[in-house]
Design a protein around this nucleic acid. Structure first.
Lengths: 190, 190
DNA sequence: CTACAAATAGAACAATCGTTCTAATTGAGT
DNA sequence: ACTCAATTAGAACGATTGTTCTATTTGTAG
């Protein structure tokens, strides 16, 4: 045994996430990751198998600690309608990773991705949609939404509006515009 | 005078559009364009100033002869509701450029674009939104939509749903799913 | 038929990409 | 203190990028 690892892998994942969000998968170079993480090529390739391997782990990190964690927290703290509104608004108000869109959304726009990557992104999408379905059903039990409506349909609508919103966020629409869009998406649920 | 141009520039723009739609701006190489158009680097750089110049002209071509032309035709032939439905469905049913998403949508997801490109894409988005607003107002005059509703809001909703749909199309959701999403977007307008 | 410039083809350029390799450094176990 | 393997840094590799350069071909005007 000698020379224990001098950096926290999770921390690197968070840093890399920021870079991937800003530049996208294929246009992010290892040089970018090196600069952001202050690690050398040697260290990076010692810790991660390849650029693709690093990205896959970043996606998993993102789904778990950004997307799902955020949804849970908002819904738990504020209930369905206000929680969804806060979640939608976090896409353009959040300081940490805000205004960059969603890692899954921007990745799905990239061409000729490896099958493994596609599967990982698909999985992420399903998790988000499933979360939406879950909170809709919860809201129906609470009486916040009528039990007569189809939760699948509502979840789909939520998901599509969310994706549309993210495109507009990425594209730099004004906060006022994005707020109106959020309102319209929520109005459909009343 | 000698040796007149042996290829049609518009034809090249159409071919290049197909490549850019499949691969995105930054990941499309001049080699790709060469292969698709069967032109040499010399010819391409004789006709177009640079890769960026070519792309700008492709975007203009796309807005005019694909997006706007398609909207006009569907609305003219089928009226508002069926027209919008057909237009939405063309994003995943059209054989020519279908299933690739929208050139503007996928470009807006790309990082660090030149200001000139950003402006061109922004312009395209505005044109689409403006077209939506125009056909909504037209539908209000026809009585297809209540005159009491705010056409700007409806156009915004249409635009956002359209962008969300395009993300899902690009991502390979099933026709059935996409049709449901389209229905939900239209239901909001009734 | 000759001359000439527009148009073309393809080799060559520097820059950047992801990745690998080789040393040098590090610190715990003996 | 010495050993030895885990870890690190950074040079180097071949492949690919957008672009430029140099010939060569081409068709028409005189």
């Amino acid at each position: 045994m000698a020379n224990p690892k001098s950096f926290d892998e999770t921390e690197v994942l968070g840093t890399a996430l920021g870079v991937f969000l800003r530049k996208g998968y294929s246009r992010t170079s290892i040089a970018d990751i090196k600069k952001a993480s202050r690690l050398s090529a040697g260290s990076l390739y010692f810790a991660f198998e390849s650029k693709q391997d690093l990205f896959l782990r970043v996606v998993a990190f993102y789904i778990r600690y950004v997307v799902v964690a955020r949804i849970e927290r908002y819904i738990h703290d504020q209930g369905f309608f206000d929680g969804v509104r806060s979640y939608f608004e976090s896409t353009f108000k959040n300081k940490e990773y805000g205004r960059c869109g969603c890692l899954l959304t921007i990745t799905s726009a990239e061409p000729h991705l490896d099958d493994v990557v596609v599967r990982q992104v698909k999985n992420g999408f399903q998790i988000i949609e499933q979360e939406f379905r879950r909170i809709v059903q919860l809201a129906q039990e609470n009486g916040e939404i009528s039990r007569k409506r189809d939760p699948n349909l509502i979840a789909q609508h939520l998901f599509t509006s969310y994706q549309g919103l993210l495109v507009l966020v990425r594209f730099g629409k004004s906060d006022r515009y994005l707020k109106t869009v959020t309102d319209a998406a929520l109005a459909y649920l009343r």
